[in-house]
């Protein structure tokens, strides 16, 4: 393999992964605090459907994923109070049906060859310069919004009714948050894949919890742990020729296990 080309795509992979980890830390912390892990999973599972629809309609893939995630988020939030089923049941139904719809729709796309494994489990070594632009552009947008809405988002996370009585636009904040989630899912798809996106959001955040005394500390630590997982996972992937997305998640899981043990020893 020619050295220069290999260096290039590894550099892009590192840049993409680290950029994603920086956003996934704070956003993932909110997902953990708001107990939305399963919700994020349902959105991520619909990402494949977004890709297929975008291909069918000749739209940009990232745009397709953001659109379908946002649509699903709206349907879920408006449907949930209306059906007499537990929240996790509704999310389970949506999560798996969205994936099934995506896979079925994909089979109609016989003119386009699509790297299915890449979309499901990530193909970080195939990150292009355009992907990097999406990750950094989308990531900057998400981070800027999070910073601007930090206090109101925290207030709504702690207690929605109290926040509403105190005059915060609870519905709009909730909607903004799921839109941010949709953008991150679209950006993360290339890196860890639709099936593993949630883990990059919640595992570093969960590992950071034990070492943080404020929300900001937890968000920053989660970003650092995510970056560490991305860098080490990528190195593993290149070194041992393992799939990149799962390798990153494996490292994140090991970090989490260490964090649990370490905290116990300190406490």
């Amino acid at each position: 393999m020619p050295g220069a080309a290999m260096d290039d795509f590894i550099v892009r992979a590192f840049l993409g992964g680290l950029g994603l980890a920086a956003v996934a830390g704070p956003l993932g912390s909110f997902i953990v605090w708001r107990r939305m892990a399963f919700f994020g999973d349902a959105l991520a599972h619909s990402a494949l459907l977004g890709v297929v629809l975008a291909l069918l309609l000749h739209l940009n893939l990232v745009f397709g994923v953001v659109a379908i995630c946002a649509a699903l988020a709206l349907v879920l939030t408006s449907l949930q109070p209306r059906v007499r089923l537990a929240g996790d049941t509704v999310l389970g139904i949506f999560s798996h049906s969205a994936l099934a719809f995506g896979l079925v729709a994909l089979s109609f796309l016989d003119t386009v060859r699509l790297d299915l494994m890449g979309f499901l489990f990530g193909d970080i070594l195939a990150v292009t310069a355009l992907d990097l632009l999406w990750i950094y552009g989308g990531g900057a947008l998400v981070l800027a919004t999070l910073v601007a809405l930090w206090r109101p988002l925290l207030a709504v996370t702690v207690d929605e009714e109290l926040a509403q009585v105190e005059g915060l636009p609870v519905e709009r904040l909730r909607l903004t948050f799921v839109l941010l989630l949709a953008v991150v899912i679209a950006a993360a798809m290339k890196i860890v894949g639709a099936l593993l996106i949630t883990s990059l959001l919640i595992v570093p955040a969960a590992a950071a919890r034990g070492f943080a005394r404020t929300p900001e500390q937890m968000a920053a630590l989660a970003a650092a742990f995510g970056g560490l997982a991305v860098a080490s996972g990528l190195w593993l992937s290149v070194q041992f020729d393992t799939p990149s997305g799962p390798s990153i998640v494996v490292v994140a899981a090991i970090l989490f296990a260490f964090s649990v043990v370490l905290r116990r020893r300190v406490a």
Partner: peptide, 28 residues
């Protein structure tokens, strides 16, 4: 202006939040 004290408020244990930060959430 209304100050409200809800009957039940449980802050998720995953959220590291000192009391002074909790207070500042309502009014900076």
């Amino acid at each position: 202006r209304i100050g409200y004290m809800p009957q039940k408020l449980i802050v998720d244990p995953t959220l590291p939040l000192p009391v002074h930060r909790f207070l500042a959430l309502g009014t900076p």
